[in-house]
Amino acid sequence: MTQYGTIEYEVDGVTAHVRLDRPDAMNALNERLLEEFEDALDRADADDEIRVVVVAGNGTAFSSGYDIGADEPELSVDDRMLDQRTHLEAIFSARVPVIAAVDGAALAGGCNLALACDLTFATEGSEFGYPDMHFGEPPPKFVLPFVTDSLKHARELLYTGKSVDAEEAHRMGLVNRVVPDGDLEGAVDEEIDQITKTPSAAVALVKDMINDVQETQGYRRYGRLDESLGTLTMESETATEFREIRDEEGLQAALEWVHGTDKS
């Protein structure tokens, strides 16, 4: 059996549970976690008995985003973009529905991960957003405009870099259902019960059809386009200064600089 170090993988009947397991780092997505996550999705997708994959996070957060801590080996821009595309593509192309069970913060790359799933459930105490916009880094995979009820909601979140609570995320169309704290597992199980009443072949076919709609709208094309745009923003004055403060004074100091400084 495959042994993982940054995720947990468990099969319960027809459901594969993939839990991000870096709780001390708020499940920040580093290179190893992304590789293991993709492997787990492939493993579940290859199992004909699996009907649904549920993605959750251990600890107090779903995921705080891509790991930008100075204590992690820094990836090159090219490697970082590749990782951010491929694990989201694995969700998109999986045979089975993937459900995000969000309990806590789903921010930056963690927000992308939650929104890229076929369905997203969240507890009332959860929050969503792209605070990385404050240091000049648009999401490297443009998921948000394809899931919001209105492009104006996507503009609002990306222009401001603010975070919103689960109820507001639901109003914007980011979340299928908001449930009280403690009720998340039961709500997801109820949804799985409903999904399994539909033949697996029909679910797979409909997922392909809906994916085709997204592709027609440019989902994969924008995934390739914003790779090059993301490379440019990584070299902006704001992003460069953020990394310098992070490396010299620590991540918390860099984040405080982000929130306290007007950017040109």
Rank of each mutant, 00 (worst) to 15 (best):
H134V: 10
N112C: 13
A108R: 01
G104E: 10
R221Y: 14
C111K: 01
D212W: 08
Q194V: 03
T120G: 06
C117N: 07
Y219R: 13
I91N: 05
P140N: 12
F121Y: 15
D212Q: 14
A204S: 14
M172Q: 12
V203R: 05
L158R: 01
H87S: 09
Y219E: 07
S200V: 10
T86Q: 12
C117F: 05
D193T: 12
L107H: 15
G161D: 06
A166N: 04
L184V: 09
A154F: 00
E89P: 00
E227Y: 12
V96I: 15
E156V: 08
A90M: 04
R224N: 13
I210N: 13
L113T: 11
A94G: 09
D193E: 14
E227R: 12
E167M: 08
P199Q: 03
V102G: 06
G104D: 12
A187F: 03
F142P: 15
A100W: 03
H170N: 03
G125A: 03
V102A: 10
A122N: 07
L119W: 05
G182N: 08
L115N: 01
Y219S: 07
G173M: 09
F92M: 08
H170Y: 02
D181A: 08
V203H: 02
V98Q: 04
E167A: 15
T123F: 00
L225T: 06
N176E: 14
H134E: 09
S93I: 02
Q214P: 00
R155H: 11
L151Y: 04
A201N: 10
N211A: 12
V96D: 03
K162P: 00
R155V: 13
E168G: 05
S150Y: 00
T198I: 15
A108C: 15
D149H: 14
K197M: 08
Y159A: 14
P145H: 08
D189S: 09
L151S: 05
V147P: 07
I99A: 02
H170A: 14
A169K: 01
T86V: 15
A154M: 01
H87T: 08
D189M: 00
N176L: 10
Q217C: 11
E190K: 10
